[in-house]
């Protein structure tokens, strides 16, 4: 299949349609509005339904309904709009329905600003809504990886009957890269559990499953334990002999990859562990790291550290964990190398 030059948001939208998504309800907000713009014509063309809702709250609840009816459904948002989705995500998780949410992270709390950031890490991985639920959170680092991961997200949402999220950011969303798109996939909405009029199948559940399951505590714990054990994804770059391992996801991981390349050319043994799933955090990836690693450096585009906590837990503090933060300023790869060198000096 020939490569196409696509913007991150457009590519995610097309890949969602090709993954069988046939419903989108949402509200525009920069930097994710291209998703709505694209799906507003593409979904009807593919026989699906696009609704620009009056708010994010109604958008997510429309997704709830479409998911209960067995359709592959999705919404997307950013910044304050993403906060508004959280109640609905909690409801969909409690009803154990599959759906996909995209958060194109933008900078700052409150209204914030429209440029890239990675500040929604806790909201995405700690369950921004109330109660006992988790979502699989995928963090693409390129336009192509977004295309690949949204297929995975829809499949995993079905497999576990649980919402999945794509945690993108303004830079990957707005940039263009060549992509290879998958073939069109049709999804059959007639699942046994789906509300399909008066047809047969299982007892239909459109509200919290806790009302119908005995020993719900054990059941729900087991569900998320299995996901945590089986769904970790990561990429490791030269971690086996690294003196210092950078940990970074999404757009910051690309700056870090360049930092690793620069450092290695100078004989500095830098490595990179790139979480692809943020929940579950890829704890298993840390087993690949040089047992004599001197330090970890968590690199995040956020004013206040967030992923750093997960790095500390994952490495069990067997080596010191330092942080390199960004936010309004995109860090230079050379600055990351300099910081790594100075940390290594302190560790000697």
């Amino acid at each position: 299949m020939p490569r196409r030059l696509m913007k991150g948001n457009d590519a995610l939208s097309e890949a969602a349609v090709r993954a069988g998504c046939r419903f989108f309800g949402g509200y525009p907000i920069t930097p994710q509005s291209e998703i709505l713009e694209y799906l507003s014509w593409r979904l009807p063309e593919a026989g699906g339904t696009f609704i620009q809702a009056e708010s994010e709250l109604s958008g997510i609840n429309m997704v709830y309904g479409a998911a209960a009816a067995g359709f592959r459904a999705m919404t997307s948002s950013s910044g304050p709009g993403y906060s508004l989705l959280q109640e609905g995500i909690s409801y969909i998780a409690s009803a154990e329905l599959p759906a996909v949410f995209i958060d194109v992270q933008r900078y700052g709390s409150g209204l914030g600003d429209i440029f890239q950031a990675q500040s929604d890490y806790w909201q995405a991985t700690r369950g921004g809504g109330h109660g006992d639920y988790r979502t699989l959170v995928y963090a693409p680092a390129s336009v192509q990886e977004g295309v690949d991961l949204i297929q995975v997200a829809f499949d995993k949402a079905d497999q576990y009957r649980n919402p999945c999220q794509i945690l993108s950011d303004a830079s990957i969303a707005q940039m263009m890269e060549p992509v290879t798109l998958p073939e069109m996939h049709e999804h059959d909405p007639n699942a046994d559990w789906a509300v399909r009029g008066k047809r047969g199948g299982d007892f239909k559940r459109v509200t919290s499953t806790m009302y119908y399951i005995e020993d719900f505590d054990a059941y729900i714990k087991n569900k998320y334990d299995v996901m945590a054990e089986q769904e970790q994804r990561w990429e490791s770059v030269l971690v086996e002999d690294a003196d210092l391992v950078l940990v970074a996801y999404g757009i910051s991981s690309r700056i870090c990859k360049e930092a690793v390349e620069i450092a290695r050319a100078q004989g500095i043994r830098l490595g990179l562990l790139r979480p692809i799933t943020l929940w579950p955090f890829p704890v298993k990836g840390f087993a690949e790291v040089n047992p004599d690693v001197k330090a970890y450096l968590s690199v995040e585009l956020t004013s206040l550290p967030k992923m750093e906590d997960d790095v500390k837990l994952a490495c069990e503090m067997k080596a010191p964990v330092e942080k390199f933060l960004g936010g309004a300023n995109i860090p230079e790869s050379t600055a990351i190398v300099e910081r790594a060198v100075s940390i290594l000096k302190e560790q000697r």
Partner: peptide
Amino acid sequence: LAHVSMVSGKEITWVPSYG
């Protein structure tokens, strides 16, 4: 520039300015 480079087999990133 990005499109023609891609057709000729190159790898590309294109990032618009923002704000």
